[in-house]
Every structure is written in C-alpha cells, then in structure tokens.
Amino acid sequence: MSASASPSAETDALRVENLVAGFGDLTILHDVSLTVPIGKVTVLLGANGAGKTTLLRAITGLVTPRAGRVTLFGKEIAGQAPHLIARAGIGHVPSGRELFPRMPVSAHLDLGGRLCPPDQRAALRQRVLGLFPEIAERLGQAAGTLSGGEQQMVAIARALMTNPRLLLLDEPSAGLAPKVVLSVFQTLAKLQDQGMSVLLAEQSMTFGLSVANRAHIIREGRIVLSGTPAELTAERSVAQAYLGA
C-alpha cells in the first residue's frame, strides 16, 4: 500500500472542500475544509456538539451535504447514497458503535466482509482478529452482551472487514475506561504502521495528538485551527480554549 502505486499520484485519501450540512433549518457545518493524507492518522478535535459526528456522517453520506465537495482518492463522492460510499472504500466506525445487538460477533465480521473481495476475505479476517485477540475468543457471543471496550473493538473490526481505503472513527474512546482507551489507540497506531489512512474524531487532545500526524480543531461547525501535533502542542492554550477545556 503506497502512494506511488496510484497512477494519478494522489497524495490525499480524503479531501473535504467547503462542506455545508445540517438538519432541517439548522446548519451544523459551515464551509468545512480538510484533508486526510494517505497512510496517515489525521485527528479531528472538538468539544461535544462541535460538529465532529455530523462531519463524519456528511462524509459517509448518512447526512446529505448541502454544498461542497468530498473527494475520496480523487473521486467525488458527495451526495452519493451512504451504502455506495461504504462500497467506495470508506470504513465508518460510527459514534455509539451501532452494532447488531442480538447478532454474534462473527456475523458482524461476515457483514463487513461482504465488501471485501471473496478471495481475500479469509486472510483479512485473520489479520483483523490478530489486531483484536479479545474478540477472537468471543465470536459466538451476541454483541449486545459484550463490554463497552469489546463492543468498540467489534465496531472497528467490522469496519476493517469492509477492506476500506480510509477509516473514519467517531470517538472510539467514548465511555471507555482509560486502560481500554489506551489499547484502542495502540491498535490505531498499528493500523497506521500498516499504511491505513485514518480520520479520527476525538474530544481528548492528549489522546488525539498522541496518535495523529495532523490535527484539525472544529468548533461550532468550523475548522478553527489546523497543524501538526507539535504545532498544536506549542499553542496548547489556544487549542484548549477552542476545545472548551
């Protein structure tokens, strides 16, 4: 998985330009632009209600954008039906995990695996279960009966089974014990080592900056600050003011 393999020499997995989205009369995202470089983790930092989830849902088509462009590896996807965007190669780990509570863990992997070419499915499953040994032992258990951390792992595993070119993670740390959060972020680091492009929405600056190569801060539906983790750490007081911390 290397950028030079792409004939158009695309450097961005995802490019969002001037995106506007909302619900009914309410506009949540105002003119949002950001990029996710190929093979890197980009973090989207923001307080509760800043628009992180809406942005991720607008990228995956769960919320229809009103204006703007969304390009996945050079291909325009804004306005497409959400299942087609999933098929185009975005793996979405939504907020609240959105698992199938009465279906076993293995069914989650199978359902994600529908989007993976059949001849690669078994190998991908091996790789995904290698990342999450905890859930490998619970394949037959109903997802609704798992702990919060295990559910988060199933949600990520399901998204990885779609064989995505870009992974969107919506606050995977929400509601988890610090120790579990740490293991989720270690997995993210492993994914980055494997060359996965990731956009991570996160509230905690410490956690977010620990894994990311690039960060954007969103506040009231606008990107207010962008930079490398080093730059944001240098401007920590400004960044934290935006995050409402």
Binding site: L62, A86, P94, F100, P101, R102, A107, L111, R158, T162
Partner: peptide
Amino acid sequence: KALLATSQNATGAVTCGID
C-alpha cells in the same frame, strides 16, 4: 443476514454497504 442486520441497526447496516 443483511435484512436481520438492518432490523437490528440500520446505520450499522449501511456502514457494511447494505442498501
């Protein structure tokens, strides 16, 4: 299975590419 998944969580089903 796709139908069962949709009945248990439509958003989750969409992320698996289910129409």
